[in-house]
């Protein structure tokens, strides 16, 4: 495959970050179509990314309002559909339908969208297999950290006993600030909001739901389980007190929100836990950190940025280049 042609659905922070990197770096990837929530643009010879970005900045639209995501999926020329629309954890829509439509057209799919992968991984993978195409989803868990690749390929042959760590940067930021600067929960949350680390409605993060969804994705994709969000025992950090962190600090410990998959018991849980301050999983601010406990390699820990435009794009590009190398010419 000379150049990999991609169509991008979703032109928010991740979609734009991805487009910029593809325009700047010579990766052998060209963008033939882009859609945001209100418009779309197609050029099968390759779009002028700078022009599209400028239009988006000026008008809020990337293209023509008559071009819908469905139209792109069904008519544009592309090897990979890159699906980066916002996550809907309850239904997975509209991303789920987009992914299904592309797969049934025999197109590879790369997504950063947790909803569809958490809800319907098995059926999507089956669809991909039947249509002889690849479905990749590295960006759904822990942003820049290549956790899925590490578990599926890097640690191939190992028995994975446990996967546990810090899966949510917002909570980690809040707990870091409470621990290091003695802020109250409310102060730390406010600060996280001001810095753009927390949404105006932070429920999804602070209640532990975001971390739980990532566990479901890892459990189903890497360990072959069949879990849903309801199978995760979830405790968030919304009732955390600065006194509690103070008590932990007295003993040289601190508190972090830890997601844990026990592969032997097949249990998934998210809860604030006490860890020694010098523990490898006690990472600062919005970082994520994940340890895989394996039979051969022992403990392997990956630490990195769990969110952000370029960080998430990094994971998407790694999936795209994997497809380019491993699936060349099949479409």
């Amino acid at each position: 495959m000379d150049r990999l042609k991609i169509a991008i659905l979703g032109f928010g922070s991740v979609g734009k970050g991805l487009a910029k990197i593809i325009a700047d770096k010579n990766l052998g990837i060209i963008i033939t179509a882009i859609a945001d929530s209100k418009s779309g643009i197609i050029d099968n010879k390759g779009l002028n990314v700078a022009k599209v970005l400028l239009a988006k900045k000026k008008t809020g639209l990337c293209g023509d309002t008559s071009i819908t995501p469905q139209k792109i999926i069904e008519t544009a020329e592309y090897d990979v559909l890159v699906e980066v629309t916002p996550t809907n954890a309850a239904t997975g829509q509209p991303a789920l339908d987009y992914i299904k439509a592309a797969l049934s057209r025999g197109k590879n799919v790369v997504t950063s969208n947790k909803g569809p992968i958490a809800l319907e991984f098995k059926s999507l993978q089956k669809m991909a297999d039947e249509n002889n195409c690849l479905l990749k989803y590295e960006a759904t868990v822990c942003g820049a950290i290549p956790i899925i690749h590490a578990l599926q390929h890097g640690l191939a042959g190992n028995k994975i006993k446990k996967i546990y760590g810090v899966f949510n940067g917002t909570c980690n930021y809040i707990l870091t600030r409470m621990s290091d600067e003695k802020l109250t929960y409310k102060q730390a949350l406010l600060e996280a909001r001001e810095l753009g680390y927390a949404e105006s409605d932070p429920t999804y993060d602070i209640k532990g739901i975001d971390a739980a969804i990532k566990l479901v994705i890892l459990a189903n994709t890497v360990l072959g389980f069949d879990k849903t969000l309801d199978d995760v025992e979830i405790t968030g950090i919304d009732n955390m007190s600065s006194d509690a962190i103070g008590l932990a600090l007295e003993d040289g410990k601190t508190i972090r929100l830890i997601g844990e998959i026990d592969a032997e018991r097949e249990t998934l849980s998210v809860a604030p836990r006490i860890l020694p301050k010098n523990h490898i999983l006690v990472v600062k601010d919005t970082l994520n950190a994940v340890t895989a406990r394996t039979d051969l390699a022992g403990d392997v820990t990956l630490i990195g940025k769990g969110a952000g435009s370029f960080e998430t794009a990094s994971a998407i590009i790694s999936d795209l280049l994997y497809i380019k190398e491993n699936h060349g010419g099949r479409n």
């Binding site: 405790t235 006490i274 860890l275």
Partner: peptide
Amino acid sequence: LLIVEPLEGEG
């Protein structure tokens, strides 16, 4: 009540 437990055997 919320119980915050140590991670694995740490406690």
